[in-house]
Design a protein around this nucleic acid. Structure first.
Lengths: 233, 233
DNA sequence: GGGTCTTGAATTAGTCGTACCTAATGGGTT
DNA sequence: AACCCATTAGGTACGACTAATTCAAGACCC
């Protein structure tokens, strides 16, 4: 999807990464480079490159005479998009989804407030367009079209905040929203109240009303949190 | 500091990483693996491992027949602790410090609210202890001792929130706080109002008053933001 | 003549295999 | 208990080959 071909070492990571993040190797487990190279039928050089990447993600630690040991969750670079994708694809999905939704509830309201102050005319226009798209697809089980606009909406907000750390969470929010539509329950049309809130946020940002934009966005993310509690109390 | 010896490839990263994040190579610049290997006097294998790590941080992109091209800032994994350290150490420091402080202002209040609900007795005790330590060192230019307790305080809050994404920001907050004391202006004793707020947050968490803990922490982070505006408007 | 398409040579990263070095470990000796 | 040494697995280096992609020269069509 995001990185189609990173060479052989990427192919290795595509299976080894998810295995580790899924907890198949408990913390402290030791993997031998040679064995892994054999298992994936690649040279040691390629395997070493893969290990280096896992190491930079703090998933493993490589030590002489002992091997490649799996590190505890608490050490993982949980903000690495690759790690997030792996965890979302595996058994850790519910836990990960909850963590990310809580993160959203902290970040997005503040981002919306900043967006109200910093958004350009183009960004305001894009925001309104997204909100209208959401309205247009809010009825009649057009979930996919709705999702596209929903993702775009939140992405614009995060970008318009003018903060690079917020902007970088665009992909994360996209994953969470997509996950909610695709994997979790969302058979019905989206909550009309949520749709309205998005429209109002677009208005507030356009009007430069930071407080209002923040408050309204907080209502949106609160809704997302409550949704989680309903699914898994 | 954090990773003393990662081998030769780590040595290479220690100088190449900061160079890239400092913007010494503008986006689109091409680096050749062979030239880099020569420059750092390492084998191609080692240089390749280093490039793989930079690639996983989205700092560069490696393509055949073209070389290793530097990616635009917008692509960087700005949450990677390594990248954050590099940027804080270089010319990008002010920009990075501002981004991180804004991030703090979004995350910490919510984390404090959650901490009020989830903190264990040990965590409450640690929190109170930290707050007392801050009070004890708030006068008489004992900035270092104050800093230690300040960092510990915020770390406990983030951990006690029970959210792994928040917990992982402990190091970031520590860097920001340390930076404020060491590099930026902070000749005088800390603001008494801030000290009081920390004590009150500890109380609120202990009492399980989430709203109050969140509001008070928001005051703390607002203060940090205003501090930035005073330094660089 | 201007423009497009084809082809092939040059270039650079990708992969592999081997040989050797280094350090941490664990056991055996004094 | 202190020390030493063989073992082991990662660390580094090098050389050969592969494969993809760019770029330019030449053929071709309008």
């Amino acid at each position: 999807m995001s990185t189609p071909d990173r060479g052989l070492h990427g192919r290795v990571l595509d299976t080894l990464g998810p295995e580790i993040t899924a907890g198949e190797y408990p913390p402290g487990s030791v993997l031998r480079t040679d064995e892994l190279a054999q298992r994936f039928d690649v040279s040691r050089s390629v395997m070493r490159e893969a290990v280096r990447v896992l190491e930079s993600m703090q998933l493993v630690e490589s030590r002489r005479r002992v091997g490649v040991t799996v590190r505890p969750r608490s050490a993982w670079n949980v903000y690495d998009p690759e790690v997030i994708r792996w965890r979302l694809a595996g058994a850790d999905r519910p836990r990960q989804l909850r963590s990310l939704t809580v993160l959203r509830s902290a970040v997005e309201p503040v981002a919306a407030g900043l967006a109200a102050k910093h958004a350009t005319a183009e960004q305001c226009a894009a925001l309104t367009e997204c909100a209208l798209g959401m309205v247009a697809n809010s009825r009649g089980h057009q979930l996919e079209a709705y999702l596209v606009h929903d993702i775009a909406f939140h992405r614009v907000i995060l970008n318009a905040s003018g903060n690079e750390m917020f902007a970088r969470l665009g992909d994360v929010v996209a994953e969470v929203l997509a996950g909610r539509t695709h994997h979790d329950v969302m058979f019905e049309d989206p909550d009309p109240a949520a749709v309205t809130l998005h429209v109002q946020v677009a208005e507030a940002v356009r009007a430069g009303d930071a407080d209002r934009a923040e408050r309204l966005t907080r209502e949106i993310t609160e809704g997302a949190l409550q949704e989680l509690d309903i699914l898994a109390p």
